[in-house]
Design a protein around this nucleic acid. Structure first.
Lengths: 346, 346
DNA sequence: TTGTACGCGTTATCAG
DNA sequence: CTGATAACGCGTACAA
C-alpha cells in the first residue's frame, strides 16, 4: 500500500484517481503522494478500482459471425475502425467476445451472449441474431446498441445504414439511363438489411414508373447454383437489361451474378448493366468497380459507440424508447452501368 | 446475486468457477445453480474475480499505434485474425486496449499501459514502445508477449517474423538473376524489424559476393520527399539495377520508390527490379504484385496467443528467461523482378 | 457436501 | 482538508 509511503491514505485515491467530487487538496500533500507513489512504483490496481466504481470502462463487441473471418476480407473490420476511434476518444476499452468464431465459447452455446454483461455495455454486430437471449438482456436494461437495424427485440437501440433510400437511388439512376427491365437478386432471409434494400428497390421502381412483374425480386439461398448463364440469358430475353444484387456477408450474390453474366457471353455494361447494393468484398478488388452505394461503416461504428456511451451516461427510464438512427449511404458511380442497348422489342 | 437464485451461494463459485480443488458437488445442486445462473443471465464480474486472485479469461491486446487505422489498410488486422481464432479456441475473450489511438487514454498518458493489468495477460503490438512503463510490468511478472521481436525490456517474451533470413533470400534471388547493384531503402528508426531486414540484406549481399559500398543502405524519415525521380536516375546511372524497400507501418517507402521509378521513366521490371521486404498495403492492391516475402501475420498472432496462455498456465520462475520464437516468412515471387538489362559498363 | 467468514485494492460516505 | 469504515463481487481456507 502506497498509503504507508507518504502519510495519508484515502487522499491517495483523491490525488491518483480522478477526484470527481471537486475536493481540493493541498499542493504539498499532493506532491508528497505523487512522489511516494513514484518511488514505490505504486500503481492503482485497475481491477480493484473498477470493482469499487461499479463500472469497468469496457465496451463489448459481440459478433454473430467471426469478427475476423479468414475467408471474407470485408468482414466487420470497417466498423471496427470507427468503433475503436470513438471508443478511444471517449476513454473506453473494447472487449471482443469471441462470439461464434470457430471453436471457443461459440455464440451457439447457451449463455454465450450473457458474457457481454461483463462489460458496461455492448455493441451487436451481424445479420442473424438469436432473439431470445437478446430479449432478456434488453429486458434487464443492459445497455445495448445494434449496428444494423434490428426490429426484433423491442426496445433495442440501433444505428443502421439507410439502405432503402440508397437502393431507390440506384434504381432511379438505372431508370434515368433508360433501363426498363430491372431485377433484384437478394438473399433468402429476413434480415432487415435485405428487407430495406428490397423496399427501396421497389419504391425506386415505382417512383420511376417502372413495372414490377412477378420475378422482379429473386430470393435465393444458393446464388452460385441458381444464378447461372442460362438463367441470365432467359431474363435478358425477357427484356431485363439491368441486374441488381444486394451485398451479403459472403458476397455470393454479386459474385454469382457477374460470373453468370460473363458465362452468358454478355458484355458489361454495354449489353447489360450490373449494380451492387453495398460495397464489394475486398477479394473482388481486381475487378471493375460496381455501380451502387457505399455503406459508411466506420461512421456507423462511431455512431453506435456514441449512442452506447450516451446510454451509459444516463440510462433509459422505464419504458422509454431507445433512440435509433439511420446514416445515409453515398452513391458510388462505378463502371458497371450504362444505358441499355438498343434492340428489337421483345 | 445469483446466490439468491437457487439456494446455495459459495457453491456458485465452485460450479461456475474452475473448481480447481477437485471438490465434488452433487449433480443436482450443480444443475440447479447452472439453471439459476442461466435464467438470471448471471455472469461473474471479471474485475471481482481477478481481484480475488483468480483469473478472468481475458487476454489483452495493446497497440502502440491505432489498432484499426483509417489510412493504413493493412494495419494489425492480419494479426488479429490469428489472435482471435486462437483465443477463441482456448476460451479467452479479448480486450482491446485503445492504445495510442487518437485522443482517448492515449498510450502517451502515464499509466495507460497499466490498464492491461485488468487482463490475465497481454499481447503487445507495434514497432515503437515506451520502454519504461513496460519494464515495470515485466518486473512485476505480468504475463506479456510481444508480437514482433523486442529487445528492450529484458525478459520480455516475443514472437517475431524471421525478417533476416527472408531478406537475405530476396537479395539472393536478385543476385541469382544477375543484379550486382542492389540498394535498400529503410525507415530511419531503430526498430528491430528494420534492423533485422538490414542485417539480412547485408548478409545476403555478402553471401552472393556482391559489394556493399557506402549508400547501399538508405535511411530516410521522409521517403516521399527524398526518394524522387532524380535520385532514382542518379542511382541507376551508378549501376544500381535493383531497389529494395522495407515494409513500414505506412507503406511509404515502397510507395515512394515505385512512384519515383515511374517518374524517372524506368520500366519495371525490364529496366529496374523492385523488391519489397514484407507485404504490400491493401491500398496498393490494384498494382503489380511486388516480389518479396510475406509475413505470416495470422500465424504470428496465433503463436503469440499460444505463448501467452502457456505463460498463464505456468508462470516463469524467478529469473527464468522467457521463450521467444521466430516464424519464417514465405518468399513471394511477384512480378517486379527480372534479370537486369544489358548496358554499357558505367 | 455446503455454508461462514475473511481478504483482494479501491472508491465513497461521513465524521473529525 | 484528512482519517476511519463500509461496501464492491468473488475466491477460498475452514468449519459445520
Amino acid at each position: 500500500m502506497a498509503r504507508l509511503a507518504g502519510v495519508s491514505q484515502t487522499t491517495v485515491s483523491l490525488v491518483l484517481g480522478g477526484n470527481k467530487q471537486g475536493i481540493v487538496i493541498q499542493e504539498a500533500t499532493r506532491a508528497r503522494v505523487l512522489e511516494a507513489a513514484r518511488t514505490l512504483g505504486y500503481v492503482p490496481d485497475p481491477a480493484a478500482r473498477r470493482l469499487a466504481a461499479a463500472r469497468n470502462n469496457l465496451l463489448g463487441v459481440f459478433s454473430f459471425t467471426a469478427t475476423f473471418p479468414t475467408a471474407v476480407e470485408h468482414s466487420y473490420y470497417r466498423f471496427l475502425v470507427g468503433v475503436e476511434q470513438e471508443a478511444a476518444a471517449r476513454g473506453y476499452d473494447l472487449v471482443l467476445f469471441t462470439g461464434s468464431s470457430s471453436g471457443g465459447a461459440g455464440a451457439g452455446a447457451p449463455g454465450a451472449l450473457d458474457r457481454v454483461r461483463l462489460a458496461d455495455g455492448c455493441l451487436l454486430l451481424g445479420r442473424h441474431v438469436p432473439t431470445e437471449p437478446l430479449r432478456r438482456l434488453v429486458a434487464d436494461g443492459f445497455p445495448l446498441v445494434s449496428i444494423g437495424r434490428r426490429e426484433e427485440p423491442e426496445g433495442l437501440a440501433w444505428v443502421g445504414a439507410d439502405y432503402a433510400t440508397a437502393s431507390a437511388e440506384v434504381v432511379g439512376h438505372l431508370a434515368g439511363l433508360g433501363h426498363r427491365g430491372v431485377l433484384l437478386v437478394r438473399e433468402d432471409d429476413d434480415a432487415p438489411a435485405s428487407a430495406d434494400r428490397q423496399r427501396g428497390f421497389v419504391e425506386g421502381l415505382a417512383a420511376a414508373g417502372l413495372p414490377a412483374p412477378d420475378g422482379t425480386v429473386v430470393r435465393t439461398a444458393r446464388p452460385a447454383a441458381e444464378i447461372d448463364a442460362a438463367w441470365v440469358r432467359a431474363r435478358y430475353a425477357e427484356g431485363v437489361t439491368a441486374f441488381v444484387a444486394e451485398e451479403t456477408d459472403t458476397g455470393d450474390a454479386w459474385r454469382a451474378l457477374t460470373s453468370a453474366v460473363a458465362g452468358a457471353g454478355l458484355r458489361v455494361p454495354d449489353e447489360v448493366s450490373l449494380a451492387l447494393l453495398g460495397s464489394p468484398s475486398a477479394d473482388l478488388s481486381g475487378q471493375p468497380e460496381p455501380t451502387g452505394f457505399d455503406i459508411p461503416r466506420a461512421e456507423l461504428g462511431a455512431t453506435a459507440v456514441r449512442l452506447l456511451t450516451d446510454l451509459l451516461a444516463d440510462p433509459l427510464a422505464e419504458g422509454e424508447r431507445p433512440s435509433a438512427g439511420l446514416v445515409s449511404c453515398g452513391f458510388r458511380p462505378g463502371v458497371t452501368v450504362a444505358p441499355p442497348p438498343r434492340r428489337a422489342a421483345p
